[in-house]
Amino acid sequence: MLDPDPHAANRARLVAALSRTSGGDRSALREVYDLTAGKLFGICLRICRDRDAAEDVLQDVYLKVWNRAGRFNVERASPITWLSAIARNAAIDWVRSNNPSSVAATPGGDSWQAEPTSEELGAFETLEAAQTRMRLERCLDQLGPQQGGAIRAAFLDGFTHSELAARLSVPLGTMKSLVRRGLLHLRECLGDA
């Protein structure tokens, strides 16, 4: 039988380090950093598309973690999801305030980078969380590269409707309804399972 939570120890270590960080323990923040910086840097790089910027944003992210660790609620969120959301928001803020037009200026062809469903368990993922994720990924794959790809890109690259439209060189209205229809399908797909 599969171990339902092979990464429980990892996660417990991260939760404990976050808890100590909220008490002002710098070595605890260092531990959070050592456990998660690679992951969060990946997120920042993907959204900022600029190494120097991603490094600066990563600093901001851990300063935010330092100041907000007390708000992390283990009952409500997984630690890595909570940290990833901070990284994503910080990187999107950077893009919005520094080069609002750069992304829109580069059409990326008529589709998105293919993102095959990752069957591996993430370093902090429970088996249950991985199953939920894989179900979402399969539903996105079913939508096809255009719709599913747009939804993935919106989340992972931080694109808005108009950035997605510029990227695919389609009118804004077309992109809005493409995303809307995609989400309606996604909703049904997730509800059916």
Binding site: A37, S84, E125, T132, L136
Partner: peptide, 15 residues
């Protein structure tokens, strides 16, 4: 929460 799981698909990169 659902979309947040997609972060697992982003590769790590050592800063």
């Amino acid at each position: 929460f659902r979309f947040g799981a997609l972060h697992e698909t982003i590769g790590t990169e050592a800063p």
